[in-house]
Write a protein that binds this DNA or RNA. Structure first.
Lengths: 256, 256
DNA sequence: TAGATTGTTAATCGATTAACAATC
DNA sequence: TAGATTGTTAATCGATTAACAATC
């Protein structure tokens, strides 16, 4: 679990399982696409297919939010978009700061998917004085010396760390000290945070290592299948589509 | 689950639970740090703390690999590094291609954490002719027209997609057609792939939305606590450290 | 009414964890 | 031998899923 609060069951938040919370953004994205195509209603089967999950799981997930569907008909797309957005807290404005404006920090600053979901890049922060004042994605880079005042001035509660690993813990402590209570960590470091601070880690290298494990397994299986079935024992794709994205317990990974 | 193969229980690979596989890279990173400090042995308690997990979980995870520890002593760091690397398939060379050399693709190309773990950026591919021939991270960008030959020539089995969402499915199909069987997808699209192809998705926007959900919940709790306990009901950090990274079922997120 | 689809139940499955016997 | 720590058991917990009654 990524939450640091232990005074309540860590896996439930207002009765909604953590696994369900992690899927709500997937549903929201699929619903947004339907909304843009002016589709008025959608069944659990259709929406589940678009989101890449099982329809029973989707209905169970929605049941935690309330009874927003109509039997025999399906779900009203606009209404569901609103309800999920509200549940996720996306109907309010979330100013975020990005600390560490290297390649990755710049990529995130340029990412267009923030604004539409209530996130606003309030400031970019870097330790390199020669970066100060430069514009990235139209936003001026500020020096890390001013971190605390930037957080206070903008009412920031979410911080994104894209520094090298060695600087991450110190940056984290300054962010937390200034009042940030949620951190998205791209640095290859396990951050130590006080109770009440949530950390999520994204780590590309870990994702690749998990892929390598399965890739290796496939090679081993193909070899053993050849042994079992004789030469030319090649697996035939059957057109199935596996679920994607969040494997139950996937730590994401990241840059050094 | 991110695996697309259904002919075996999706959650087990050679008897190792998916949740365990997802944690092996975390252990490996912590062990590598110990190795660099020339620490000869480590206990499950120490290593678990460094990796940010429960020590019982760590011992259970290692038990799937074999009995590599010594009771009363702990684990030999170097030996464990080797065993986990081997299990993950990191003792072999994995050429990868990155398709879509925008901000994010460039950030990944520059990422230093690949080579040390057996991954090698074999080629960078982009659809923009004006990018062709330019060097990014010392690697020349090649045109997407040559995708198939690039994959064949380099024996690539892992592809990274950092294109806009609209191009991702097509790129995916070309990669798969050329023989790629593992895909790390940063595009905001649920990819349809044939059986036997693994897809993992990293999506920054989803991670932020999950943080926003918890952030909103904290605000709501603080309000209700103030109601229950009267004014000044402020939570006191107790110095606990929650586990980070892979929440059981976390889809990772990404750029548009 | 007949057909469709939700919301929920209950069974199953996998993951987590404390506890402790085994053993270095 | 005494102390330390692993490897494993068993209990618990949470997540998934098929099935179907409820109901539009």
């Amino acid at each position: 679990m990524a939450t640091g609060r232990n005074h309540r069951p860590a896996t439930r938040s207002r009765g909604i399982p953590e696994a369900t919370v992690a899927r709500l953004p997937l549903y929201l994205r699929a619903l947004t696409a339907l909304s843009e195509r002016s589709v008025p209603t959608v069944s659990s089967e259709e929406l589940a297919s678009a989101a890449g999950v099982n329809s029973a799981k989707l209905r169970k997930d929605f049941s935690y939010l309330g009874s927003y569907g109509t039997r025999g008909v399906g779900y009203d797309v606009e209404y569901l978009v609103y309800q999920i957005s509200r549940e996720l807290g996306l109907t309010q404005d979330w100013p975020v700061v990005i600390v560490g404006i290297g390649n990755l920090g710049a990529a995130l600053a340029n990412y267009g998917g923030f604004a539409s979901r209530g996130f606003r890049v309030a400031a970019l922060i870097d330790a390199d004085p020669s970066m100060t004042g430069k514009q990235v994605a139209g936003i001026p880079v500020q020096h890390v010396d001013d971190l605390e005042s930037i957080v206070h001035t903008n009412g920031v509660s979410i911080g994104v760390i894209t520094t090298p690993g060695g600087a991450a813990q110190q940056v984290c402590e300054r962010l937390v000290g200034a009042g940030v209570t949620s951190i998205l960590n791209f640095a290859p470091t396990v951050l130590q945070v006080p109770e009440g601070v949530d950390v999520r880690k994204v780590d590309l290298s870990i994702e690749l290592q998990i892929l390598a494990f399965h890739e290796q397994r496939k090679a081993a299986e193909d070899l053993s299948r050849r042994d079992e079935e004789g030469p030319r024992g090649v697996a035939v794709p059957e057109g199935g589509r596996g679920e994607q994205g969040g494997d139950g317990d996937i730590p994401a990974v990241m840059p050094a």
